[in-house]
Design a protein around this nucleic acid. Structure first.
Lengths: 193, 193
DNA sequence: CGCGGGTTTGATGATGCTCAAGCCCGGTGG
DNA sequence: CCACCGGGCTTGAGCATCATCAAACCCGCG
């Protein structure tokens, strides 16, 4: 069932296994949430009360720029955490929207409940440390890549690092995520090979 | 003396004060390191054994791209931590160089010693959590800004967020940090006002 | 005085954006 | 079953932004 993938994720990231008791604690603290395609998980202006672990589906995080078009900052699929970190930790209104690109299943928890749980389950603390670490490294790389590589290189990179994304998200969303227009991505794919 | 600024930093980030005993533990664990201008703190290929808290001076983190020119990924001044995170946490060779842009004073500590210290000083754990949090948020914003704004906007943004940088680093390094060429930055400054 | 790093200026070209139009295709209702 | 609609993708022409390369300039310092 859906908690299994969360248990596996924790074990993987914390490099330690969790006990049956801990599993029960987790089941009590995280609750399932189902979102239909196109349904919001977080809306611009609301506080990101929950962080959600995706067990099935796909989501995107975006904001509207001054011209009013969507700028996608993150794409999420199974085994990703969906939240606006700034809003979630500081409990302040978010500038982002997060919605479901497919029918999606999540396990959600509030900041307070997560803090409680971390006191009881050391593996969770370690998991978050490792996540933060990898996240920081990935962010550094994505930034460097955005600055130094041209559109085509970044697309190739995404093909290598996240081929699933290309399958599951429409091309204009991939383009936005890469920081280019849909027209450029279209031409670029044509030019390859 | 130099430890004061580290104590203040910890108190600030952990939103709690530290005891005299904890201060002593910190003094024993972190040791001072002096770097002359242009001296390396970390060289490409070496493991980033230490993380360093800067009490005085300025540093930069960069790598060499295929064409062989320096690409600056981070600039550091007082109250910043200098390290290659990926190398420091995983103890693997770094792809980056970090060197001093001025005569610089640091307080350095190894990963193992830091881990020990964190077991004894809860405020350190909290400090790191808050640092990671702010870091992730800042990285998100810097990425969004790089993707969506043009060179001039990004320069203005830096002027607002880190005016000290503009004073202390030569213009061609600022340009590299912003992801533009020195020529573009030069022209852009001329065009403003 | 002259060297050298940093900065500026100019000319040219590549990359990717904008706007507008057309196309493809799956779904819906007549 | 077909016609139409709409979303997503493609194509084209023109343009803005920025990189590149080369040369000159500026200024502090030996």
């Amino acid at each position: 069932m859906m908690y299994e993938s969360l248990f596996n994720y924790i074990a993987d990231y914390s490099r330690s296994s969790i006990t049956k008791d801990e599993e029960d604690l987790i089941k009590n603290a995280f609750r399932p949430k189902i979102l239909r395609k196109n349904q919001y998980f977080l809306q611009d202006g609301d506080v990101s009360k929950y962080t959600g672990f995706i067990t099935k589906g796909a989501m995107r995080q975006y904001y509207l720029n001054k011209k009013g078009d969507e700028v996608i900052v993150n794409l999420f699929i199974e085994n990703y955490w969906a939240t606006d970190r700034e809003s979630f930790f500081n409990l302040k209104p978010s500038a982002y929207n997060i919605d479901a690109c497919e029918d999606t299943e999540l396990l959600i928890i509030t900041r307070a409940d997560l803090a409680e749980l971390m006191k009881k389950i050391p593996a969770l603390v370690e998991m978050i440390r490792v996540m933060d670490d990898r996240h920081a490294i990935a962010a550094q790389k994505r930034l460097a890549s955005t600055i130094n590589n041209k559109a085509e290189d970044r697309y190739e990179e995404l093909l290598r690092s996240n081929p699933q994304f290309i399958q599951r998200f429409p091309q204009h969303q991939i383009a936005s995520y890469l920081g280019i227009t849909k027209e450029t991505l279209s031409r670029l794919k044509k030019a390859r090979k």
